[in-house]
């Protein structure tokens, strides 16, 4: 059986909020190392990969591999019944029909319990190769969100160009064009504001802003975001979570321009 207790329901609420517009039904694959999720969007342009390691829970118990097929809009409805600071316990039997979510207020005077019916989801799992990216940009997540939002007003796509000079987000649209260039920046007093660019070779790729803006819904999960690029491979946008856990988004590049 599975029993996993999160100190704060907020983590799962934010994760589900960040991915629910991209993927609808997905398997939460549970085993003794934690809870993992991999799902593509309907048009197979983007892939979500989440890992909540067992250390992120206390306690965590999962004796056998269990796939919890859950509709994210149902899960959202139930998670809305939890306060951010509630303790969240997820429970399921070994061959479950339902998953049980229990919310306890931190001062323990309220206990809410919900069951969500599970679905049988036949999901394709993709092998994501270990990649040494040509460029990795680490920047404040709100800054990345803002750039995506600003450029979305002008165009449907953005070119991301990394050179030793910095990283340039540029777009071209009907009303004109725009570009934001960031250089490496280190602020000892506010390390959350740091911008780090690790570059082994220059990269230039074009991506859909609609998808990038969607990924930015995860901005509340981490103060900084890693943007990893290599020519002709999907972009990786990574939000690191506590206890070595993560929420990653992969996005296929635009081709032929």
């Amino acid at each position: 059986m599975l029993e996993a207790r999160l100190e704060q329901a907020e983590l799962l609420k934010k994760v589900v909020d960040a991915i629910k517009d991209l993927v609808q039904d997905c398997n939460f694959d549970c085993n003794d190392s934690g809870v993992a999720l991999q799902a593509m969007d309907n048009s197979h342009v983007a892939l979500v990969s989440m890992m909540l390691k067992s250390e992120a829970f206390s306690p965590f118990r999962c004796d056998r591999n269990i796939a919890l097929g859950i509709n994210l809009s149902s899960l959202t409805k139930v998670l809305r019944c939890a306060q951010n600071n509630d303790i969240l316990t997820v429970k399921a039997e070994d061959a479950p029909d339902v998953v049980n979510l229990m919310f306890e207020s931190s001062d323990s005077d309220r206990l809410s319990e919900y069951d969500i019916k599970l679905m049988d989801i036949d999901q394709e799992h993709l092998g994501i190769p270990e990649t040494e990216y040509a460029a990795t940009v680490t920047m404040p997540s709100p800054e990345f969100q803002r750039i995506c939002r600003d450029l979305s007003a002008l165009s449907e796509s953005v070119s991301i160009e990394c050179t030793k000079e910095g990283v340039k987000f540029a777009c071209n649209g009907d009303i004109g064009s725009g570009a934001v260039t960031l250089r490496s920046h280190s602020d000892v007093e506010n390390p959350d504001q740091n911008i780090k660019i690790d570059l082994t070779e220059p990269v230039a790729l074009t991506f859909s802003l609609k998808y990038l803006s969607n990924f930015c819904k995860a901005s509340g999960l981490a103060k900084s975001v890693n943007i990893c690029l290599s020519n002709e491979v999907p972009l990786l946008v990574e939000y690191g979570l506590a206890a070595n856990s993560y929420l990653r988004f992969y996005l296929a590049p635009k081709i032929g321009d």
Binding site: M40, V45, H125, P234, Y250, K254
Partner: peptide
């Protein structure tokens, strides 16, 4: 979609 790559062309099915 024209011009948009497909993620399955990059990551193989397991």
């Amino acid at each position: 979609k024209a011009g948009q790559g497909n993620i399955m062309n990059f990551f193989a099915k397991k």
